[in-house]
Amino acid sequence: MTFRTILLAGVALAAATAVQADTAEKRIALSNNYAGNSWRQAMLESWDRVTKPAVEAGTVAAADSFTTAENQATEQAAQIQNMILQGYDAIVVNAASPTAINGAIKEACDAGITVVSFDGIVTEPCAWRIAVDFEKMGKDEIEYLKGRLPDGGNLLEIRGLAGVFVDDAIHAGITAGVTENPGFKVVGSVNGDWAQDVAQKAVAGVLPSLPEVAAVVTQGGDGYGAAQAFAAAGRPTPIIIMGNRQDELAWWKEQKDASGYETMSTSIAPGVSTLAFWVAQAILDGKEVPKDLTVPFLKIEQADLETALETTPKGGVANVEYTQEDAAKVIAAAGGA
């Protein structure tokens, strides 16, 4: 789904939001493990922007968000236990670890609480999962590059935070894509930790020893840093896949205006938290919802660039917030009612 279609769908459906009396007494909590970057900040803001009107309209009784200070699984487990004691009807969770808080999740389920995990999903079977097909994200990057560079070329891969499953999944997708398209060759790989300054540092270090690089495959939050490093080293700018951050999009626009530069940008919208909210509401409402749901990527292509840049706050992340109807569609797509 492209940025534009999501945007249009959102506008068209926003007016039709119906009040569900069945969940008017229900209280939903957001358990979030980390708030220390712009993506997470946008995620929390989206949560507020969507859930506040929902509470005012009486769709649900409460939608409180809580963030742990230290990004530790133990801390988040304790936080979830508190939520159980506070008697929430549903807990929406972005987990610090896919497995480490399973115990607390199970306790919540046993207490009759609906648990919906998203982005950082949990493996505990009693919880719902709104997952992102990160492997496909990696494969899509190579697919796009195949269209741009039919003869292949040298790739620099910027990976995320070592040891996090998201990093492994995107990497696996990229590796699979490169295996299918032997014209491409990964000549260098660094860890950018999804942060512009870390990526810039890592790329600047490895760049002098690399042959000509045709394209940079990334994981989001690292494209602008890579661009800076190439510029500082005085090397021609390769095709750098972007990750929907405003500074990346602004840089892309600058290059596009100056030299017709073309690339694409892909990431998950931080507003996925609002999708999780509506899914939790639907489950509380008694809807049949499959345990595994998939959230679409937010992909920005050359033609969408200007629109995306206009709607993205300066210094923030391109975002989409979901409506109740969007959630119903995602649920229907996964085979639910």
């Binding site: 220390g36 970057n37 712009s38 900040q41 300054d197």
Partner: peptide, 16 residues
């Protein structure tokens, strides 16, 4: 200086 160098301050810029 780091914020000026890397094109803006990020919330996790000091972590390492």
């Amino acid at each position: 200086l780091l914020a000026s160098f890397s094109g803006g301050a990020a919330l996790n810029m000091g972590a390492e």
